[in-house]
Every structure is written in structure tokens, then in C-alpha cells.
């Protein structure tokens, strides 16, 4: 990140839903620039609209107000340049690891040989070599989410959105996967927007941390994390930043 090039930028995003004849506001006037190849973490208390924000960026939902730009060009809806890793272990149980991974290029109409090659590259990258023919119910939680990551990469997006990808994993697997995602990102640089509600995870992974307020989501503060990688989660700097962010975090509802 020598010259900070803005990859993605969202401007004045606001969004709400109608709940019981009332407008429930989920996001309020959020503007954010994300730099090229940056690991940006969006941190916020539970149910504060983090997922909504990601869904808006990915185009799964359309914001009521606001614009999105990639490389300075406005866009709407979903876009090939944006990939997503989901919160739940969103694998198709009737497809093998390979078939799950190659799903994106298959949808795009790529030839089998070509998409297999790309999928294989990322299956190897996430460390699942040898499991191509396994079905998801034979995999552990960590392995399933590795498939999710490989699948997102196989679309070869420029921006990767990750919505609490490790939220459903047990603590040990989660630590391992945090290291893994860092390794994968360093090997295959992409712009990553990673959503979490876990402060340690945020500091461990993020180049920058965007702290959201409680609902409706607003940007409360943006922290630059200038600690060298791999980060030591018990170093004084780490713990200091942790306390700083923790003190500034709203209590979840």
C-alpha cells in the first residue's frame, strides 16, 4: 500500500426496512473508501447492520439512498468484480468440493476444463488438495469455510467480501482460519472487506478497522492498525488498541 489507490467507495449509503408499519433504519449515511489490496475490517456490535452494509455492496440488496463506485466508476446491483464469502457455511450439500468451488465460473458459462483448472488452483491454495471429490457433510466446519473461500476466489473477483466467515467455527479452528485467511490474502492479494463482531479478530487481521455504531449503523471511528504481521495478540500495542476499541464500542441490543 505504497500509493493508496481507492478501489471501492460507497457514498452516503442509507437503508431501512418496513417492520410493523414502521421504518426500521439499518444504516445511516455511511461513506467509506476502501483502498486497493487492503484488508479492511468492519467491526460492530451484534445486529448493527454490518451484514446489510455488505449485502448492499455485493448487490444482494439495493440501498434506499447512496452510490457505490469501483475504481471511480459508479455501479449498481451485483458486479463480477465483487465476490462474497458467507456467514453460514453456505455450501450445496449435493455438490462435491470441486463442484461447489467451480460453481461461479460454471454460472458464467466457462468451459469445464478451464474452470476446473482455476478451481483446482484455489482448492490447493486453501489447503484442501485431495478433498475435491468429498461432499460437504464429510468436512469439518473449518474445511467447509475453506471451500467457501476457494469458491469466492474462483470467481476471480477484485474485491472479496467476507461476512463473519468464522463466526460459526469453534475457537481453535477460528484462530487457525484467521492465520489461514491472512496467508491466503498475502499470497493472492485482493481487496478484502471482512465483517466481524470480534475485536481480536479485527485487530489480528485488519489494515484498517471501521468501527460501526449500534443500529442504525454509522461509522463511529476508523482505526489504522500499524502492527507488523503476523501479529502478536498479547503484545502491549495489540492489547492497547484492543482496549481503545473496546471502550469505544456500543453495547449490542
Amino acid at each position: 500500500m505504497d500509493q493508496k489507490k481507492i478501489k471501492l467507495s460507497i457514498k452516503n449509503i442509507s437503508h431501512g426496512y418496513i417492520v410493523n408499519d414502521d421504518v426500521f433504519q439499518a444504516a445511516s449515511n455511511i461513506s467509506l473508501d476502501v483502498y486497493d489490496n487492503e484488508f479492511l475490517v468492519i467491526l460492530g456490535p451484534g445486529h448493527c447492520g454490518k451484514t446489510v452494509l455488505l449485502n448492499i455492496i455485493s448487490g444482494l440488496e439495493e440501498a434506499e439512498v447512496g452510490q457505490k463506485e469501483i475504481d471511480g466508476q459508479p455501479f449498481k446491483g451485483s458486479d463480477k468484480r465483487i465476490g462474497m464469502v458467507f456467514q453460514e457455511l453456505a455450501l450445496m450439500p449435493w455438490k462435491t468440493v470441486m463442484a461447489n468451488t467451480e460453481f461461479g465460473p460454471q454460472m458464467a458459462g466457462m468451459s469445464k476444463q478451464q474452470r476446473r483448472k482455476i478451481a483446482q488452483k484455489y482448492i490447493d491454495l486453501v489447503g484442501l488438495h485431495g478433498f475435491e471429490k468429498s461432499y460437504p457433510n464429510k468436512l469439518s466446519g473449518g474445511m467447509k469455510q475453506r471451500v467457501g473461500i476457494a469458491r469466492a476466489y474462483t470467481n476471480e473477483p477484485e474485491i472479496l467480501l467476507m461476512d463473519e466467515p468464522f463466526g460459526q467455527l469453534d475457537a481453535q479452528t477460528r484462530y487457525a482460519m484467521e492465520e489461514e485467511i491472512q496467508r491466503i490474502w498475502q499470497q493472492e492479494k485482493r481487496t478484502i472487506i471482512f465483517v466481524t463482531n470480534n475485536i481480536e479478530e479485527a485487530i489480528y487481521l485488519g489494515d484498517r478497522i471501521v468501527l460501526l455504531s449500534k443500529c442504525p449503523a454509522q461509522i463511529k471511528e476508523i482505526y489504522d492498525v500499524n502492527l507488523p504481521r503476523p501479529r502478536d495478540s498479547v503484545s502491549p500495542e495489540f492489547l492497547g488498541l484492543r482496549k481503545q476499541i473496546s471502550d469505544n464500542t456500543d453495547l449490542p441490543l
Partner: peptide, 28 residues
Amino acid sequence: VPVLINVAKTCGASNFTIFWKIGIPSSM
């Protein structure tokens, strides 16, 4: 499962493709 529909959507699948590739296998 809605999240599987979202997966297909972010892969750029049309509604009919999602019906065919996600909906029908899910319902089997």
C-alpha cells in the same frame, strides 16, 4: 436455504438458473 440462493446471485445466476441449480436439488 436462502444463503444458497444468495451464493448463486453473487455468482450472477439468473432466477431460472437458481431455480434449476439450487431450488430443485434442495427440494429433492
